[in-house]
Design a protein around this nucleic acid. Structure first.
Lengths: 180, 180
DNA sequence: CCGAATTTTCAGTAATTTCTGAAAAAACAG
DNA sequence: CTGTTTTTTCAGAAATTACTGAAAATTCGG
């Protein structure tokens, strides 16, 4: 690996963290490299910078594109594909949450609903536990979807207010009806 | 595996999802089994129900205890250790977020701060990108910590209001100062 | 203490995931 | 089209992770 010290440390860290984030080392490193790079890089540059095989780069880029975390960019006069990460960090966060939700939560929500549909099939306790779990997941995902719908500026405001928001709601009292 | 159909499907699903959640199949299955069980179970019951080895059960329980997702419970008159999951789903969610934050986010935040400390060491672009990332992570984790501090009742209210909250903030106008 | 019951550890094996090199496929300039 | 460049695929090798059985350590009633 042949990179400036700052880039190298960052890339290695993302590689190590990769497995905790549900991606592998190489995928983490490719993402980190592109994240720090002002210009789009082609697959050979990535291969060279990280000291991995060309095919590994190809598979890593494919996975990152499936995650929507890396995009193809055509550089005029160069036949090779070039890759970048989105600039806007808010967009990256949104993508990350959406994709993780899709992979880690949605399948379980589907399964829980299916289990409830099957009708009385276990003891009362476990049935109640499953319903409760489904309701909790629905509440949290709906809240996230509501938040994701806000413009960035309002979201920043809201997050900066922090727990003061709770007070606000008390004050609003009967003014705002609860949803649904 | 010898379980009622509902339990079995639930347990198998959690096992399959385990790898996406950063735990292994066995750990997912043990958790699912305990989650649906009204009573605390001992290690032999778990071993028997899941058809795994006693040592695997021991290691799985150890990991779940490290995650704080499973607790030891002493049953009077029985020498064996018994295990349960916390009843309160809100508590479980809080634990899950806290633990994932600790494993998946905190180490990166620490690393980013260290990289910034080292002083000018890369190009302007990558340094800016690292600061921006650190700031974003700080904002999100501080918001989460603020929310986690609220009582459950207020949190439910807040989540149910959903995106209406943004309107509330606009109305509050200059009344509330932004934090810091 | 002693000894039985219970839990944990750990070396070896099994299973899974990641990575590579070679070959096939696709893209595209002339 | 044709030949070259570029990308993807994929079978096998390498690395990592998960699981087991046996043995060691711990717990605890008597």
């Amino acid at each position: 690996m042949n990179l400036p010290p700052l880039h190298q440390e960052f890339v290695l860290h993302f590689g190590e963290m990769g497995s905790r984030w549900g991606i592998n080392r190489t995928v983490g490193q490719i993402y980190a490299l592109l994240f720090l790079s002002a210009d789009a890089l082609n697959a050979d540059q990535i291969t060279e910078a990280l000291g991995i095989s060309r095919s590994n780069t190809s598979m890593g880029l494919k996975e990152l594109q499936a995650w929507q975390l890396v995009r193809l960019k055509h550089v005029p006069g160069d036949r090779k594909d070039h890759f970048t990460t989105p600039d806007d960090l808010w967009e990256i966060v949104r993508i990350l949450i959406d994709e993780r939700k899709k992979r880690e939560i949605d399948p379980t929500l589907t399964k829980l609903r299916a289990l409830e549909m099957q009708g009385p099939a276990g003891d009362d306790y476990s049935e109640a536990r499953i319903s409760e779990l489904r309701e909790m997941i629905e509440m949290m995902t709906e809240f996230y979807e509501d938040m994701a719908r806000l413009e960035t500026e309002k979201l920043v405001k809201l997050m900066t207010y922090g727990s003061k928001i709770a007070g606000l709601i008390d004050k609003a009292g009967g003014v705002l009806p609860a949803r649904r």
